[in-house]
Design a protein around this nucleic acid. Structure first.
Lengths: 225, 225
DNA sequence: GTCATCATGTAAGCCGTTACATGATTGC
DNA sequence: GCAATCATGTAACGGCTTACATGATGAC
């Protein structure tokens, strides 16, 4: 899980440990927060495995909106020089390596064991192509639909029935509603992804696909752009 | 987390390990499933601590609806004798002790570290009185409301903005919706609990309170309101 | 007599945590 | 100078998992 989070974050831009922790909480919600005690050893491990490498010290702060395929380190360094002349020797800035990118793709495709991992996979699924994303979403959907609780009113007598008090019933009903909400969220994602696949004939360059993905946004609740 | 689950389950009725695992998955959803590798050592630990004790072997299956204050072990043994003459020597049936009940109450009142624990606390909160339940629900509500994500449309520029792609936006929006859903679920629970407190003047016997809690049930059909 | 299920346990290991230790930079 | 924050790390430990080992019971 940590590897996925770290590699995913670093595939956006090079970062140092402290900043990684902050951005992780931001991207994946406070529930995915990790402690330094696991973060730094993990970075060391990833570096030893050749999946990330330390680059020149670069304060990241508010980065440039990432204009395109421009080498991320270069951009970051440039931003630094422009912003302040200070050097911060104590920071170790990590960047993802090609091997790391490869590993990231593996981690994104690998069936998620838990909710948090799936969450992270979605957060970084921009690195996949539409077909792979569809697989990701649909696998999750199948998983959810499988061990779905029976609906609130149904068949109280079946299944041993540990639901003999109001609180367990409330819990059970809420669980059911939450699952349904996630299912329809997934259905939306899947439907949109299918549209992308239809609009972009196979073989089209990923640059075009990426641009398209940015443009095609659902008008929902103020998420206009 | 395991202790809470085990003590909670055993406070309903005596059970052996294998059965505990099954019922745990049932009550708390498949996400709370534990493996034998942690279950049995945990039971051993609880026994050594005097929070549970082994009782005579009792096949539990469909237990009697737990008529009241009747000693649970006695009931279970009686059920056994009536159902079949077989003895299953290999099972170790555990029952909760008074010390265990006390510990259970502690665990139910202790601020939940994670979602799963809160889930379990609700599942077993029948053992608390209304005031304590209210505290439980309201603490959770405060927690949720605190690090609540900003609403979907709001203030894109703030907060460093790691939300530059549609998938992260979708994730973020869903998170927001899920939090709101849980908040209103909690509000319902809290409102109902307040009604109970109002209906039952302080000082009333807990037996009456329990009967009342059983009787005042929302007409299902979901969390309408 | 053999297979599936029920039933209990141990050992090794993974993945994360908290607590501790250290030091640089910035603002007052 | 002093405190708050930034920044990196280590050590000990906790809780849960998988894999392994064992054996009883019941169905066919």
């Amino acid at each position: 899980m940590l590897d996925l989070a770290l590699l995913g974050l670093l595939s956006d831009q090079p970062l140092h440990g402290y900043e990684l922790k902050k951005q992780l909480a931001e991207v994946a919600g406070s529930r995915a927060a990790v402690s330094f005690g696991s973060l730094y050893p993990a970075l060391g491990r990833l570096e030893k495995a050749g999946l990330v490498s330390t680059v020149a010290d670069t304060p990241v702060g508010r980065s440039i909106p990432m204009t395109g395929s421009l080498g991320a380190e270069v951009a970051a360094v440039r931003a630094h020089r422009a912003t302040s002349g200070r050097t911060r020797r104590t920071r170790k800035v990590y960047a993802i390596t090609p091997a790391g990118e490869h590993r990231l793709t593996e981690l994104l495709l690998q069936p998620a064991t838990d909710e948090r991992t799936f969450h992270l996979q979605v957060a970084f699924c921009q690195h996949l192509d539409s077909a792979q994303r569809l697989e990701l979403f649909e696998r999750r959907r199948a998983e959810l639909a499988m061990h779905r609780h029976p609906s609130p009113g149904a068949d109280r007598s079946a299944a041993g029935d540990r639901l003999f008090d109001r609180y367990r019933r409330a819990l059970h009903d809420r669980e059911h509603a939450a699952t349904n909400a996630e299912l329809s969220w997934l259905d939306d994602l899947i439907a949109e992804e299918r549209n992308l696949v239809d609009e972009i004939p196979p073989g089209t360059s990923s640059a075009f696909a990426a641009a398209n993905a940015q443009a095609t946004i659902t008008p929902s609740g103020g998420t206009s752009q």
